[in-house]
Design a protein around this nucleic acid. Structure first.
Length: 162
DNA sequence: GCCAACGTTGGC
DNA sequence: GCCAACGTTGGC
């Protein structure tokens, strides 16, 4: 592999898919379908690799927070839900011979004992340049190794404190 | 190719 | 539920 392990943040509304759903899934593994944004698609298709680390983020939640981690167990492949007329994410324009949308598979690693909420993330100076904190609506975001390690540390700290 | 209208995301 | 930010669509 040309590059070492990379890190990402995946956003999901817990109403539609939460980290608890991932943990309950068979083999604690699920496919990350339904991405219908080109920038996020490009990341899933071209950049996210087997073995990469994923921060699981609950958006539109109370409170919104990073709730745990997962690992990429299958790199980008066509999102078949785009061809399922009954699926909420159906897209008539995606051609099976030249798929528009992609997804990856992730496996649950850890659910944080105490989620790291958005307000507490904002207070951490070393995380100030996280894409998440830049007013970004992007659902698949890059995370630096430094940010990843810092968040790992934070999750241990808040777990013992609460 | 510009840009106004419209739709969606997501924090609050 | 409101609304700011921003992505997408479509008329020209």
């Amino acid at each position: 592999m040309a590059e070492g392990k990379q890190y990402w943040l995946f956003k999901s509304e817990p109403e539609s898919f939460s980290i608890a759903d991932l943990e309950k899934a068979p083999k604690k593994t699920a496919f990350w379908d339904g991405v219908r944004n080109y920038q996020a698609r490009n990341t899933l298709r071209d950049k996210v690799k087997l073995g990469d680390g994923v921060l699981f983020y609950h958006s539109n939640a109370d409170p919104s927070a990073i709730v745990g981690t997962a690992e990429v167990v299958k790199a980008g492949y066509p999102d078949h839900t785009a061809w399922d007329k009954k699926d909420h994410h159906f897209d008539a324009k995606s051609d099976p011979k030249n798929p528009t949308w992609y997804m990856v598979d992730i496996k649950h690693i850890e659910t944080f004992a105490a989620p790291i909420t958005l307000p507490s993330l904002k207070k951490e100076k070393p995380l100030a340049d996280m894409v998440l904190l830049q007013n970004s609506r992007l659902s698949i975001q890059p995370v630096s190794e430094k940010q990843w390690n810092y968040i790992q540390k934070l999750s241990k700290k808040s777990a013992t404190r609460s």
